[in-house]
Write a protein that binds this DNA or RNA. Structure first.
Length: 624
RNA sequence: GGGGCCGUAGUCUAGCUUGGAUAAGGCGCCAGCCUGCGGAGUUGGUAAUCCCCGGUUCAAAUCCGGGCGGUCCCGCCA
């Protein structure tokens, strides 16, 4: 449609087709037209004549051209703007046919078929329950995967489990003797989180505690120590509890890479040997960093003139820094380093698929080469992420460096405080707490509308509404903007929210149910009211919107922006247009052909919003 | 000191990449639509120096320069 319009205008105004496409826009009010071109402004410059005059002349030539083009009905000039009107009947038939032919796969494209992507998220420490900040990461990551799959990518969903961190050492130290146990009914991740906040006080005030914990941390690095064995059980149990939260949100993974595997599989040694071959990596002989393996950053244009250009990858005692481990991990993700991991099944997820974890004993898996790697990490980590990608380039892996993406997002905070693991300010704001509370509120609403339904139904729908509300809330905010958590906005199910979308689907579904099997086919050329046509036009944009978001995944200084909000915005737009159509165009009460035509439009909307919701991970609810 | 991000009605946000018609939406508030396919809806109204100053341009919320305010980041830490 766009292309046809652009070609006609290009002919009429004597400009290039690409330029013409750039000059196309959608008028602010549909009454002005469906498409507009600002070509008159562009020409006014060279021709040194009034754009209004030029518009009139170009429009004359456009007018004769569209007489031969069934897609367009007429052209109008409004000052310097040339506005095109689509032939509603022709477009409606075209769009509705296209959607009904593809149905469940409408929105899927093959733009990136054959490409593979690896996405890491959310990498929560296995020492506490997920709080709502983690939910932002997880929901963004999961939705990114869905979106990539929509455009043809094969996606590997990966989680990183830091089972060797200081937090784990603290918990191991405190819990190993077994005198502390979860309270009755307490989820294990919540239990650890509670204990962890307690330990913090002692750890920070009592040097003896700190020494003891450091010793445990050292023991954890030894694979068969008592500490390591206890810790593995503790971490597994915590992770299983955390997974329950993930599953509530509809989030699943393919693999977990545990830090202990990175440490003991030989990955680090291989990486160390490989990077030492690079001229920009060296062991410093003197200075404050003597004995460290460092990357010399000012060999890169970007870091020219740094005071201290040396970034430590391995300390003088031979141990890895975060950057060092992360670099090795990133090399592994790109399969620059041959996979040293063994894998075992961690558990079977509710979606029926197993998630595998890395171990030292188990079988090998071939993950294969990937084209793109995405790390979903807070925006605050932009600098360390960039370092890793830059060092990758220093090592000679330019392509892998370019194909490494940091999906950056801002924190979720409270009105006056940030979430802090140490201070325990997250207490009361775990994902479980938020979902529980949202479910309670949703349950009241479901009860109001379906007093006679079963408890099973009410609870299920309340859960789906709660998840829909939370996921939408996270996705609808532009990732580079901080979210201030307020209960009333998460618990709001009206207006620009997830439940509104779910409701619009349920409404459409009810109409179709009541219509039964009748009304197949139908003559879409009857759909010419502004309400119907606005919906038709919007539905036709779905595949384009998805591809646009993927094309928008470009590298920037701050990381790679993923405009999840464009997708929620689109979903909200079609749901709103459907509501307006619903209020203005009776479907079941219409007669004959018109009824069948409108049913076809409802079906097209239903298919589109369903595919959209699935992509966003918002539960599709048949009745609510 | 250097760098990133943010600043838009009472409030929360979208739009900024690629300049274009009356700055869009949610919440709030006011007034309608329930003997209409489900009111988690819809119609109308209210409400903005688009942080400030300057520049580029026929045209700036959008691009450029300089400020101001908020926030994050720049360790052999984790």
């Amino acid at each position: 449609m766009l292309k046809t319009a652009a070609d006609i205008i290009a002919q009429a105004a004597d400009i290039g087709a690409d330029e013409s496409l750039d000059l196309l826009e959608v008028p602010p009010d549909p009454a002005l037209g469906d498409l507009a071109t600002t070509v008159a402004f562009a020409l006014a410059k060279h021709l040194r004549r009034s754009p209004v005059q030029i518009a009139a002349e170009v429009a004359e030539r456009v007018k004769t051209a569209i007489d031969a083009e069934p897609l367009f009905e007429r052209v109008e000039v409004k000052g310097p703007y040339i506005n095109l009107f689509l032939d509603r009947a022709v477009v409606a038939r075209f769009v509705i046919n296209a959607i009904s032919e593809t149905g469940p796969s409408y929105g899927r494209t093959r733009d990136f078929e054959g490409k593979r992507a690896l996405v890491e998220f959310p990498a929560v420490n296995p020492s506490k329950p997920w709080h709502i900040g983690h939910a932002r990461n997880a929901v963004l990551g999961d939705t990114l995967c869905n979106v990539l799959e929509m455009v043809g990518f094969e996606v590997i969903r990966l989680d990183y489990i830091n089972d060797l961190g200081l937090q784990i050492a603290q918990l191991t130290w405190r819990l190993m003797d077994g005198d502390l146990q979860p309270e009755k009914g307490e989820k294990y991740d919540h239990f650890l989180g509670r204990v962890y906040v307690d330990i913090q006080r002692d750890f920070e005030s009592d040097p003896a505690v700190e020494r003891a914990v450091r010793e445990v941390a050292r023991q954890l690095e030894i694979p068969d120590s008592d500490e390591a064995r206890f810790s593995e059980k503790m971490v597994s149990e915590c992770l299983k509890a955390q997974c329950q939260t993930a599953y509530r949100l509809g989030i699943y993974h393919d693999y977990q890479v545990w830090e202990s595997s990175i440490a003991h599989s030989g990955l680090l040694d291989i990486a160390k040997k490989m990077i030492l071959k690079c001229p920009s990596v060296m062991i410093l002989q003197e200075g404050e960093k003597a004995g460290c393996i460092v990357a010399k950053l000012d060999d890169l244009e970007e870091f020219k003139g740094m005071k201290d250009p040396y970034k430590v990858l391995f300390r003088s005692d031979g141990t890895r820094t975060y950057t060092g481990a992360d670099l090795a991990f990133q090399m592994w993700k790109h399969q620059i380093i041959e996979d040293p991991f063994r894998y075992v099944e961690f558990e079977v997820q509710p979606n029926g698929k197993p998630v595998y974890r890395t171990t030292l004993e188990g079988h090998r898996h071939d993950l294969g080469k990937v084209d793109l790697v995405f790390n979903v990490i807070a925006a605050a980590q932009a600098h360390p992420q960039r370092l890793i990608y830059n060092i990758l380039e220093l090592l000679g892996y330019k392509r892998e460096s370019e194909n490494s993406h940091h999906i950056a997002y801002e924190f979720v905070g409270l009105e006056d405080t940030e979430f802090s693991g140490r201070k325990g300010t997250w207490i009361g704001y775990t994902v479980d707490d938020v979902l529980d509370r949202a479910e309670e509120i949703a349950r009241i609403e479901v009860e109001k509308r379906n007093p006679d339904a079963s408890d099973e139904f009410k609870n299920r729908v309340a859960g789906q509404v709660a998840v829909g509300a939370l996921r939408y809330f996270m996705l609808n905010a532009s990732p580079d903007r901080k979210i201030t958590f307020r209960w009333d906005s998460v618990l709001d199910f009206e207006g620009d929210t997830g439940p509104y979308l779910q409701y619009s689907y349920a409404r459409a579904q009810r109409i179709l149910e009541r219509a039964g099997d009748e009304g197949e086919g139908g003559d879409a050329t009857l759909l010419v009211t502004p309400y119907e046509f606005a919906l038709v036009k919007a539905l036709s944009r779905f595949p384009y919107e998805v591809v646009q978001v993927v094309r928008g995944l470009k590298k920037e200084v701050r990381g790679t922006a993923f405009s999840s909000n464009r997708l929620t915005e689109y979903a909200f737009e079609i749901a709103t247009l459907f509501s307006k159509f619903y209020d203005n165009c009776p479907v079941l009460k219409a007669d004959g052909d018109l009824r069948r035509a409108r049913l076809a439009l409802v079906r097209a909307f239903r298919d589109t919003i369903r595919n959209c919701l699935q992509m966003l991970g918002i539960p599709v609810i048949e009745r609510m």
